[in-house]
Simulated assay, not measured.
Amino acid sequence: MSTFPPPTFIETNGVSLEVFQAGSGKPIVMCHGFPEHAYSWRHQIDPLVEAGYHVIVPSQRGYGNSTAPEAVVDYDIVQLTADLAGLLDHYGYDDALFVGHDWGAIVVWNMALLHPQRVAGVINLSVPFMPRGTMDWISLWEQFLGPDFYMVHFNRQPGVADAVFDANTENFLRNMYRTRHWLEAPPELGEGMALLNVATADSMPGDLLMSEEDLQVFVTAFEHSGFTGGINWYRNLSRNWQLLEAAPEQVLCPALMIHGDHDMVPPLENLAEFVPQVEVVSLECGHWIMQEEPQKTTDLIKQWLLQHYPA
């Protein structure tokens, strides 16, 4: 099992966040996605500390041992970014470099829109900036991808996915955390909501991308928290679209975007229109970039930091 700092609990924005932090120097805040945990960044923490940074990694609200509010609206983008601003206040920082993956990337992009003075730079993995457009995201995806697209399903059938994932926690996570999946044909998952079928499938293509000990860290975390908190982030996508109506349309700070060549999340071809100072790179991996290619991911981050956010 990878070494990992012990947790501390920090009160911010009305919740208690389980935070893993180490080092000193300029702050770097690392934000995980779904269905993940602060432990997703285990490979990057020590190298960044050794490079001279104070690394701050929260299990965000609804995850791990952090507070999981009951109200769905408590997971909107205003609350999620305010949690991160509160972390900076706690540690006494005016700003920080923010790193995000998956849903964490969405939060980080919007941190740069809603709290630009707190963001010295952005490094995001997998999920590019999401232009607001003229139709809320859930309605748009329902129109083009149908009612069984998992984000639509989470919104239109509340509680269904939560129960399936809770009842199959280890199997769901084991099937999700795969690498080299693109080398094998996926099993026939049948009609309907494919992500729910992943939770109950006997196996999925590819190799488990972590050790059994590491997997148990995630399993234990979700057996404690359940999946509703994390899914509630998706249930605010239409609300977030409304809340962002008056927000700026560009992220103006320096940014690095890292894609996986085999990720199901497509790149945004005109990303530079919305993030003028962005650099874009890709790695030969799938969705779980920093866990599938930990050394290459860390090297890319450190190289970019040398130029844009030196210790």
Rank of each mutant, 00 (worst) to 15 (best):
A85Q: 14
L268K: 09
P131T: 07
E70I: 12
R156F: 00
A185E: 14
S211N: 01
L209G: 01
V198Y: 15
G133C: 08
Q21K: 11
H43T: 05
Q44H: 08
L300S: 12
F98M: 11
D89Q: 12
T3M: 14
M204S: 00
I10K: 05
W182E: 14
C31N: 11
L209A: 08
P131A: 09
S139E: 09
N65S: 12
M193P: 10
G121D: 01
H115K: 11
V198M: 14
V281C: 05
A120D: 10
C31R: 05
L237E: 06
T298V: 08
P158A: 09
V251E: 05
F222H: 11
F144H: 13
W41C: 00
L215I: 07
S203D: 13
A185I: 10
V19R: 03
I301E: 08
Q79V: 15
D76A: 03
H32T: 05
L84I: 12
G260L: 08
A167V: 12
E223P: 00
P7Q: 00
H308I: 07
G260H: 07
L48K: 07
V29D: 04
A201H: 07
L189W: 05
E245Y: 06
T12K: 00
P205E: 04
E293V: 15
D94L: 08
W109T: 02
I289P: 03
L189I: 01
V49K: 10
A272F: 06
K302F: 07
E142Q: 15
W304K: 07
G33Q: 04
A163G: 06
F98K: 00
H224V: 02
F129L: 09
P128Q: 09
L256R: 01
A22S: 14
E279K: 13
S2F: 15
N124P: 07
P248I: 05
S282D: 13
A112T: 09
D95R: 14
P254A: 04
I77F: 06
T169M: 07
M290L: 14
A22E: 15
V119L: 04
F149A: 11
E191V: 03
P248R: 02
K26W: 03
M1P: 11
P205W: 02
S282I: 10
A221P: 03
L268T: 04
L283G: 01
L195D: 15
P35K: 02
E170A: 10
R174S: 06
P7T: 01
D214L: 08
E170G: 08
H90E: 00
L256Q: 02
